[in-house]
Write a protein that binds this DNA or RNA. Structure first.
Length: 309
DNA sequence: AAGACGAAAGTGGTTGA
DNA sequence: TCAACAACTTTCGTCTT
């Protein structure tokens, strides 16, 4: 705890600058000058709706207990005992017994209603746990819960593990919401293999008609750079390298994280803030060998080789 | 001793016949 | 459906600083 840097909300610990940029789509707050990510995985405190006049405000405000996709039974469980006694412990009169039995039956049906509700409750709590570990903001969690519910409604969960579908829903929501989380990272918190998540998310996307854009390596760059303590200059340069490479068609088939790692390495060397391949490898979850391969490939194709000899 | 480099061998996924 | 393939991984030895 001693080495934990003090978080001073008034000034950037890196350069002392006092203005910050809030990127709600990536759940990051960063320094407006040097780009250091002050806080990631923050929860969006703002409203998720927009009102243009008072009438809309009244209609859209949801105070009290809002209906949420992430809550299975709306938090209002009711248990009824099996003994036919009233709250004072006295036996229920014969004339009311039929009514009581009927109420109990209905209550039971509403609460459990097969295994579906139970599974849903489990899935949603699991989803929340994983999302917390990944530092995913509220709106993305709601979207993930929405994806899971759609899957359950369309009978897509049967025959597959709940954990697998949950992890895939989360992955889909992250991609759809523009938040970079790799298959590896989701796999890490969910204990579902990368392979399974990959298979399931493709399956879900196809069955539910969800269109996913391919992830740009650039989406990973700011987070990696921040974890490595690299400046905003390096980030910009790395993104330039990625854009240039994409225009030349060098990136197809390559893992976005690998490309992000390699371009960060190139950029850090070019701008004199060199990080070792190993450091970048540890942060990005890409092996040194792959960074080297991407690095060689990119520098050669972009004719940057002279800078490295 | 650390970092960079690359060869070898294996895995998982895509593609094209 | 099978074979070829490109990307990626792990492991390990060599070279440079």
């Amino acid at each position: 705890m001693e080495n934990e840097p003090d978080y001073n909300p008034d000034a950037c610990p890196e350069c002392g600058f006092t203005e910050f940029r809030t990127d709600t789509s990536r759940a990051e707050i960063s320094c407006a000058r040097c780009g250091l990510v002050i806080e990631e995985g923050m929860i969006d405190q703002g409203r998720d709706w927009v009102a243009y006049n008072q009438d809309q405000t009244n209609k859209r405000a949801r105070t009290g207990a809002p209906m949420k996709y992430t809550i299975a039974d709306k938090g209002l469980p009711t248990d009824m005992g099996s003994a036919n006694k009233d709250i004072h412990g006295r036996p229920v009169p014969q004339r009311n017994l039929y009514q009581l039995v009927r109420i109990k039956k209905l209550n039971k049906r509403m609460r459990i209603s097969g295994t579906g509700e139970r599974n849903l409750a489990f899935a949603l709590s699991e989803l929340d746990r994983e999302a917390s570990k990944l530092g995913v903001p509220r709106d993305i969690r709601e979207d993930a819960a929405f994806v899971y519910r759609s899957a359950a409604k369309n009978n897509l969960v049967r025959g597959r593990s709940i954990e697998g579908i949950v992890a895939s829903s989360l992955y889909i929501a992250c991609r759809r919401g523009g938040i970079p989380r790799s298959l590896d990272e989701v796999s890490e918190v969910s204990k579902v293999t990368k392979k399974q998540i990959g298979r399931n998310y493709r399956f879900l996307a196809r069955e539910l008609g969800i269109k996913l854009d391919i992830t740009s390596p650039a989406a990973f760059v700011p987070r990696f750079a921040s974890n490595l303590g690299l400046s905003n200059r390096v980030v910009s340069r790395a993104i330039e390298i990625i854009n240039e490479s994409r225009e030349k068609g060098l990136l197809s088939g390559c893992e976005p994280t690998g490309v992000a790692a390699a371009s960060l390495y190139i950029s850090s060397v070019l701008l004199g803030e060199k990080k070792t391949q190993r450091e970048i490898s540890e942060i990005s979850g890409v092996t040194e060998v792959t960074i080297r391969n991407r690095f060689k490939h990119l520098t050669k194709q972009l004719e940057l080789t002279p800078a490295f000899s």
